[in-house]
Structures are given as C-alpha cells and as structure tokens.
Write a protein that binds this DNA or RNA. Structure first.
Length: 323
DNA sequence: AATATAATCAACCGCAACGAC
DNA sequence: CGTCGTTGCGGTTGATTATAT
C-alpha cells in the first residue's frame, strides 16, 4: 500500500531533519530520521529475531542502524511486528470496539489497542483522530483546543452538546458510515445535524453496499480476531450477532468472533447497559422498523450510567505470544 | 483536467514511568 | 535516595492519496 513511502518517494517527514534525512546528535553521531528503507527494516527485523524486541538503543550503539532506539521501537511496533493488519481499514466491529472503549477509557490508545488484534495504538489513534475531525466538520464545531487538558480523560456529560468526546456522537459517525470506515465526504453536504437523522438510513444503505471485506486481514482461520480475547469487557458487553449474509460484513466476524457463545444470543439482562450495538445495526430494514436505534438509545442515556462498570483487568498480554 | 478538500498514514516529539546503578 | 538510561504512551505534524468540485 503506502509501504513505498518508507522507501523512496517522499522527502524528510521531519521539519527538523536535514535534507538527507539525517540529523546530528550531540556526540557527533549521525542519527537518521524520516522514512525507513527496506534495508533498514531487514536489519531491524533480523535484530529482533535474534535479540527480541528490547534493548532498542543497542541497535544504534552496536552500529547496526543509525536510528534512535525510540525510532527502532516505533518502527517495529507500528510496521514490522508480525500479524499487524497493515493497510486494512477498521472493520465495523473494530470501530465499535474502539468507540466503546474510548468512551470507557478515554484516549488510552495503547490500552484500547490491546483489544484489537493486529492494531497498534497508532492505528487506533489515527482512526480516532480522523473521526474527530469528521465529527467536527459535520457538526461545524471546532476541534477541542490543543490546550484542552480534557484530552485523555473520560468523556464529559452527554448533555454538553456538542461535545466531540460524547459517545453518542460516535454513534452518529458510526452509523453515518454504516459502521464502516468509508470516506464520508458526502456528508459535507449535510447542512445540519438534524438532517443526519433522515440521512442516516440512506447512507447506511449506500455505504453498506460499498463495504468490502478486509482482503489483507492476516488473522488465520484458526485464530479469529477476538477468540483469544476472553476479555471480561467483551464478554460482558454483548456484541451483535450479525447475520452471515449481512451486507458488507467482514469475513471473520459474526459467529466466528466468539466461539463458545461469547456473542450475546439475546437481549442483555434487564438493568444492564447494552454497550454493544443493536443487533440490527447492519440490517438496513431494521432501521425502518426500529427508528429508535442505537443513536437515539445512547443519546437518551445518562453519561454516567456506565460508571459502575469496573475497569476490566488488563487484557491478555497482546502479541506477547510472538516473543 | 486542474484544483481544493478530506482522509489516511508514518514518523516525530515531549513527557512520564520504571528499573538499574 | 538521586541520577541516568530505557521504554512506552499520547499528541502532533506533514506527506501522500482519494475524492469532490
């Protein structure tokens, strides 16, 4: 995909980097920055294969690469680590998980990423950033000031509208996309938020038709995306059981996601919040049948109603299986 | 076809936590 | 107990690509 960026092509990505992509370090050591070359990747992969993903700084001290340990680690974590879903858009399920977890944890991208096999904190962060920009544009609301220290904190009250951190707004975007990460430039024509309500069903239909499965999803059949994540959150928060013939449903999701009945077979117990999307999310007809779908549902909920939920224990060591 | 705008992605930076000494 | 080096995280930037006008 854009891997070519790492090679030739674009010039230095750092304004502080010299023309040749190198930067002087204090001791006169030349420290290279900018896009990674394929040869550098090979060296880094070989290093990790031999020594494991640690002692990053020794890569430079040993003269293997003119890169900072920080840069090496980042390259490994974000691009070279096995089983990464590189070049693959977030599936509807992944989007939903990010939305729910962000509502719970705030901007704890690394933590959220542990729930998404093959995704890095950078992926999640970029995904969320894109959503925020889109929301801001749709709502004609400036993004929160960069000095806003609410970043990283849990969302504020849902009554403070428009609040871009509001989970219910996430629902808007989620449904705007038909639960799919499609470019939503068409939404720029929607004059105001009110018309979103009427536009959503049509958009869902339109976008659902365009949805495509993730062709590069590396998840092997023996290890569906989440089946090794018997995470309390994912268990407690029922995920939708989507019909296998749901339009645009990414393969690998649905029943296969939660073998052993992890998927909620029916409505959640009374009194328990249903953080999962309503099962008819991708069912276009259900939108008409049940106009009060997830967006309305979440809008009507007090923002603190999930406060009682215990933060889930640390997820299983992500990718620790590799090393 | 050219231009403008939005989306995506890779990589950097600063900061904080942690462990070794 | 303080210092230093390493690691990890979150925020940000800028280039590239895709789409709309």
């Amino acid at each position: 995909m854009q891997e070519a960026r790492g090679g030739s092509g674009h010039t230095s990505s750092s304004s502080k980097t010299n023309k040749n992509g190198k930067e002087e370090e204090g001791g006169g050591m030349v420290l290279k920055k900018g896009p990674w070359m394929a040869e550098e990747d090979e060296i880094l992969i070989e290093y990790v294969r031999k020594h494991g993903p640690r002692d990053w700084s020794s890569i430079r001290s040993k003269g293997l690469l003119p890169r900072s340990g920080k840069s090496c680690r980042l390259r490994w974590v974000n691009k070279l680590k096995p089983d990464l879903k590189t070049g693959c858009k977030f599936s509807p399920e992944e989007e939903r998980i990010v939305i729910d977890l962000q509502a719970q944890f705030g901007n704890k991208w690394a933590r959220i990423a542990t729930y998404l096999p093959g995704r890095t904190d950078n992926d999640v962060k970029n995904f969320w950033s894109t959503r925020q920009k889109r929301l801001a544009r749709i709502l004609r609301t400036p993004l929160p000031s960069r000095s806003n220290k609410n970043h990283g904190k849990l969302p504020l009250s849902s009554h403070q509208v428009p609040n871009l951190e509001d989970p219910s707004l996430d629902r808007i975007l989620f449904e705007e996309n038909g639960g799919c990460n499609q470019k939503a430039t068409k939404m720029t024509q929607i004059p105001d938020i009110v018309s979103l309500d009427t536009a959503l069903p049509l958009l869902e239909l339109e976008l659902a038709m365009e949805k495509e499965p993730c062709l590069s999803d590396p998840a092997p059949p023996s290890q569906p995306p989440f089946d090794h994540l018997p995470h309390p959150l994912l268990v407690d928060l029922p995920l939708p059981v989507l019909p296998e013939d749901a339009p645009g449903l990414s393969p690998g999701f649905g029943d296969a996601i939660f073998p052993g009945g992890l998927a909620c077979p029916e409505a959640p117990p009374e009194g328990l919040p249903f953080l999962g999307m309503d099962a008819g999310h991708d069912d276009i007809e259900s939108v008409d049948e049940h106009p009060g779908t997830s967006t309305d549902f979440f809008d009507d909920l007090p923002a603190d109603m999930f406060d009682y939920l215990e933060p889930p224990p640390p997820p299983p060591p992500a990718s620790s299986t590799s090393w």
